[in-house]
Design a protein around this nucleic acid. Structure first.
Length: 797
DNA sequence: TTTAGTACACTTTTT
DNA sequence: GTGTACTAAA
């Protein structure tokens, strides 16, 4: 405890009553939580099981768990505190108690991820014949989720005052969606929280069990909680959601008990999924006698980086004023590197080069590239790969999202809950068993008429024998496969045995082996990996149930490895992490801030908080970059510099661009004058702040500057773009002007080429000519791949 | 019924 | 650029 400052120490030592810790970025928040847990166990004598700490991501939970475990005296480690995400906490509670609620669910319930939910909605829309483009399954689902999270039932939604054509459709989908999930004994991510809250409210024994058990409840990243999550934690910590009146009652409640929430409204970046930082603002009001502790000493970043972060966040209206003090020993630090590139490739090259410099100068330095959307990662992957810099990427596609992995898991889900319609629809004909569209439709019809699950409909179909005998045989074979898997589970077979049966006895692996294609090889490897993961989980004492739940709740963010030299990740995933060297890329209007945030001032402020989060990840070196044009949806479009660039105090920036840049323009005296005038105007008219036009006003000058710059560029021919740049537009022009010939094709049989994913290979065959040509390329280790020359990112070596 | 080929939508951010 | 959903042919 000696290395804590007085404020941190106060937070650790406050062990009775409600406690609100406002922790600025880099102020040692996780440290405080872990020390506090250790203190409660080692000094106050609470048993580890009496402590609950809730986080939002598995990553944060895992990190906290391991830090607590290494800190605890091994002698006192009789059990471990429950450190978990909201969702896994709910799964845990529901698996033990959901049947006590009498709500048609059993403890064998299945969890539906977003993909499963979409399948359900798509099917419903098909059944209801709602298939116009104005309402996509995705939109319907997000509307439903929004309503669910606000406690609106399908009936209440249907009876609302304003009924539009759209809302009427959604109401019908909503109703069926809930029915079908219930029929499949399935819960979606929202349900996990909603049903847990309902359970704790309805069943006093369950509520008091958890209330009595957890004497100390802690919530990390509290600014990201939504109403339901808040309710959940209150039900556990307080035993009710009522305000506790009267000094005496409060004292009785808080004796040897605490409710500690930690957060920072400037880092609230999950508004899109319903989080509401008004909850943190109202906390003291909800709990009389709340102890408030502010952690304002930043131990992470240099003075320069902090000033940049403060400069940006100061532009937000909706916030609590806050001071974040730098640690003098860390010094002012280097200026912030600014780079304007011609396009996305140029940006990626700059970043990769700088990373190489840093790694050469001080080997072992951890670098991170932060972007707004996952789609941006590709260019950085390519440029790093070209330079042989190994990297670690967080997000994108997860292992558990791969088709073959989901297939095997669907079999396991069916073994435990054959009524899981989504799982059933997924594997009933995988591998192919001759159960096609017609048969499925027949089953679906019966299902609808009799109100059954797909599984029950199948059993009846087999019995009635009204289908072709060949079909009946196929259906019965499938039924037997699932039944025998179910028997294994019922007999208490081990996780590894069941998963082996799910891969072998279903014929899944055999089908892949017979395919003998490269893709099948890859799938087999993934299945192998899944089995290995299951065996390892079993060694950790996990059951099949645990394993499946884990697969449903892990996100891509969890793949983060702290030891990697270079990490590529979104700004959202970067929350809670720190890196000596940080690149924030794609600072362009429409990308960051994202165009979806343009409509409302609130959303823009959330984007700005995201910018604040991104900047404060940096410890020593920070770079910000933007491109003059960027490829979106395959189209190269001009991009305007982000308004956030203008909000960083410009004197903190050092221009590393080749040639003239936006920054150079912004720093010209007359421009500066305009900026100051604009700033003064803003200061005089604070009432207009809510108007979003105010935001565009700030970048107005700079936008003009960019146009000017573009004009100049057109005349002078532009900055030095890399000679290796593949310019799709240029090629198209050549073709159009009639110069296209066989010569036009970059490739010949025998050419050596490089692909971003498969590495170096040799062209085996070319079909067609020019950019439409189809190339067959052999890659050592990956086999043969086919590409269309126009689309494949193939480079000649 | 299956498969190959093509059209098309996709891009916030996460459990 | 990429993955999925639909369509046409076998």
């Amino acid at each position: 405890m000696k290395d804590l400052n007085p404020k941190q120490l106060e937070a650790v030592h406050t062990t009775d009553g409600p406690l609100l810790v406002l922790a600025g970025a880099g102020s040692g928040k996780t440290r405080v939580i872990t020390y506090r847990i250790a203190h409660l166990i080692e000094t106050c004598g609470f048993r580890p099981e009496q402590i609950l700490a809730v986080t939002f991501t598995n990553k944060a939970a895992g990190e906290m768990k391991s830090r607590v475990l290494t800190m605890l005296d091994p002698g006192l480690r009789t059990g471990s505190p429950l450190i978990s995400t909201f969702h896994s906490l709910c799964v845990r509670i529901l698996r033990r108690n959901i049947d006590k609620m009498n709500a048609a669910y059993t403890r064998a319930f299945t969890i539906y991820d977003t993909d499963d939910q979409l399948q359900v909605v798509r099917r419903i829309m098909k059944d209801l014949d709602i298939e116009d483009k104005s309402l996509t399954a995705r939109q319907a689902l997000s509307a439903i989720s929004w309503e669910k999270n606000r406690g609106v039932s399908p009936a209440a939604y249907a009876n609302r005052e304003q009924v539009t054509d759209r809302s009427e459709k959604i109401a019908r989908i909503f109703k069926l969606y809930e029915d079908r999930l219930r029929g499949s004994n399935a819960l979606d991510f929202d349900d996990l929280l909603i049903k847990t809250v309902a359970l704790l409210r309805k069943v006093p024994e369950v509520r008091s069990y958890y209330h009595e058990r957890f004497r100390h409840v802690m919530v990390d990243e509290f600014q990201d909680t939504n109403g339901i999550q808040y309710e959940l934690t209150r039900l556990i910590a307080v035993g009710s959601t009522e305000k506790v009146h009267g000094e005496e009652k409060r004292e009785a409640l808080w004796r040897e008990r605490s409710f500690c929430v930690v957060g920072d409204i400037d880092q609230s970046v999950y508004g899109f999924r319903g989080s509401d930082f008004n909850i943190i603002l109202g906390f003291q009001h909800d709990f009389e006698g709340t102890r408030l502790i502010k952690l304002e000493q930043n131990y992470r970043s240099t003075q320069t980086i902090l000033e940049a972060a403060n400069g940006v966040i100061a532009k937000n209206q909706r916030r609590l004023p806050k001071n974040l003090y730098a640690t003098p020993e860390l010094g002012a630090g280097e200026k912030i590197g600014y780079y304007q590139s011609f396009d996305g490739d140029g940006e990626a090259s700059f970043v990769a080069e700088k990373i190489q410099e840093h790694l050469a100068q001080s080997p072992g330095t951890r670098c991170a590239v932060l972007y707004r959307t996952n789609a941006q990662s590709r260019l950085f992957e390519e440029s790093l790969r070209r330079r042989n810099v190994s990297y670690n990427i967080v997000g994108g596609f997860s292992f558990y999202e791969r088709a073959e992995v989901k297939d095997i898991i669907a079999y396991l889900k069916l073994a435990m809950n054959p009524n899981d319609d989504v799982a059933m629809a997924r594997v009933i004909n995988t591998p192919v068993r001759g159960i096609g569209k017609t048969t499925l439709e027949a089953l679906a019809r019966q299902q609808r008429d009799l109100g059954l699950s797909l599984w029950e409909a199948l059993a009846i179909a087999v019995e009635q024998r009204e289908l072709l005998s060949r079909t009946i045989t196929a259906l019965d074979a499938f039924r037997k496969v699932v039944v025998s898997l179910g028997e294994l589970v019922a007999a208490g077979e081990t996780l590894s045995e069941v998963i082996k049966a799910a891969t072998m006895d279903t014929g899944y692996v055999r089908a892949l082996q017979e395919e003998k294609s490269v893709e099948a090889e890859g799938r087999l490897l993934n299945i192998e990996e899944l089995v290995t993961a299951a065996v390892e989980a079993e060694e950790q004492g996990e059951s099949l149930r645990d394993f499946i739940d884990y697969a449903a709740l892990v996100s891509d963010t969890d793949q983060y490895r702290a030891d990697a030299q270079v990490t590529l990740l979104t700004m959202h995933s970067a929350k809670g992490l720190e890196f000596p060297v940080v690149f924030i890329v794609g600072l362009e209007e429409g990308l960051f801030p994202h165009s979806r945030a343009f409509e409302s001032a609130e959303d823009l402020e959330e984007e700005r908080r995201l910018c604040y989060v991104a900047i404060t990840r940096a410890q020593k070196h920070l770079y910000i970059t933007h491109a003059m044009q960027r490829r979106t949806w395959g189209e190269e479009l001009p991009a305007e510099p982000s308004r956030f660039l203008n909000e960083v105090p410009l004197e903190l920036l050092q221009d590393m661009s080749r040639g003239p840049s936006w920054l150079g323009f912004a720093l010209r005296p007359e421009t500066l004058h305009n900026r100051q005038a604009a700033a003064a105007l803003r200061g005089e008219a604070p009432a207009r702040v809510k108007n979003s036009s105010n935001y565009t006003g700030k970048t107005y000058n700079s936008v003009d500057g960019v146009r000017e710059f573009f004009k100049q560029r057109a005349r002078s021919g532009g900055e030095g773009r890399g000679p290796a740049r593949r310019d799709g537009a240029g090629k198209r022009k050549e073709l159009a002007s009639g110069t296209g010939s066989a010569n036009d094709s970059e490739f010949r049989v025998g050419s050596r080429v490089r692909h971003s994913k498969y590495g170096d290979g040799v062209v085996l065959r070319i079909e067609g000519a020019g950019e439409e040509a189809k190339l067959t390329v052999s890659f050592p280790g990956y086999g043969q791949k086919k590409f269309v020359a126009k689309y494949a990112a193939l480079e000649r070596v």
